[in-house]
């Protein structure tokens, strides 16, 4: 076992002198937290603007529903699929069968007592008798099979339910993106970065999330979302 070592190296020099200069950070923050009336007015105006923007944007419920509809994972659709899986018990497996049979048969008979029987010259093979027969049959068959126990339980209904998990994952992803975008939007409107480049990248991030939500909702999301203008970054 390694013995406990003296920690002389750790105690060397300026390693423990750094924090005092930073302990004033909260105090600064508190000073900043007391805004002037002008700042307050600007904050209120920004908040009003944000609220106006948010009101014009799609709601989370709409966005979730669009995504579920686009991916065909709506709860009602999945529940409907489960019900239909049971109703399959009422629908039979149908079989149709049509058979047409055509047949011919011949019988040639010789007589050993009278081998020469070609009396009229039309019996070259010296037959005693010749019988020619035809037969034809047509069969039409319709069958139906009802697996009635599926009315009470069909394992497919369980299988369908596992789709709900995909729906839930989709909704979670859409909700997370939706509110990520809203937080970003709130930051851009209420406390935008002072550096235009930083602001530009925040706006690009906003566009990125918007386009992802668009892709998840079949391009429905961005139809009514707020769009930034070049004037925001000073162009």
């Amino acid at each position: 076992m390694i013995a406990k070592l003296p920690i002389t190296l750790l105690l060397s020099g300026a390693m423990f002198t750094g924090h005092a200069i930073h302990s004033s950070a909260p105090a600064q923050a508190q000073e900043e937290a007391a805004p002037s009336p002008k700042t307050l007015k600007m904050k209120r105006s920004s908040m009003k603007r944000l609220m106006k923007i948010l009101k014009g944007e799609p709601s989370i419920k709409d966005t979730q529903n669009w995504a579920l509809r686009y991916y065909k994972l709506g709860t009602s659709r999945i529940n409907g699929m489960a019900t239909k899986a049971r109703l399959k018990g009422l629908i039979p497996e149908v079989s149709l069968n049509f058979t047409n049979h055509q047949g011919k048969d011949f019988r040639n008979m010789r007589d050993g007592l009278y081998p020469e029987l070609n009396l009229n010259g039309t019996n070259p093979d010296n037959l005693k008798e010749r019988t020619a027969g035809t037969n034809s049959h047509m069969t039409f068959h319709v069958g139906g099979k009802w697996v009635l126990d599926r009315l009470l339980f069909n394992a497919e209904a369980l299988d369908v339910k596992s789709l709900n998990s995909l729906g839930e994952t989709l909704v979670r992803e859409v909700s997370t993106l939706y509110y990520s975008r809203r937080r970003l939007l709130a930051g851009i409107i209420l406390s935008p970065p002072t550096d235009p480049e930083e602001l530009f990248f925040e706006l690009v991030r906003l566009d990125e999330i918007t386009s992802t939500l668009d892709a998840l909702t079949g391009n429905r999301y961005s139809k009514t979302t707020w769009k930034w203008t070049e004037s925001m970054i000073g162009i």
């Binding site: 039979p92 008798e129 035809t134 037969n135 039409f140 099979k145 126990d149 009470l152």
Partner: peptide, 24 residues
């Protein structure tokens, strides 16, 4: 408890004919 039910409907029609020649 509910069975598998199979229903079958079958229609069959046919004809058989023969002709015998006696050479005697």
């Amino acid at each position: 408890l509910l069975p598998h039910v199979t229903m079958d409907f079958r229609a069959v029609s046919g004809d058989v004919g023969s002709r015998t020649i006696d050479y005697t």
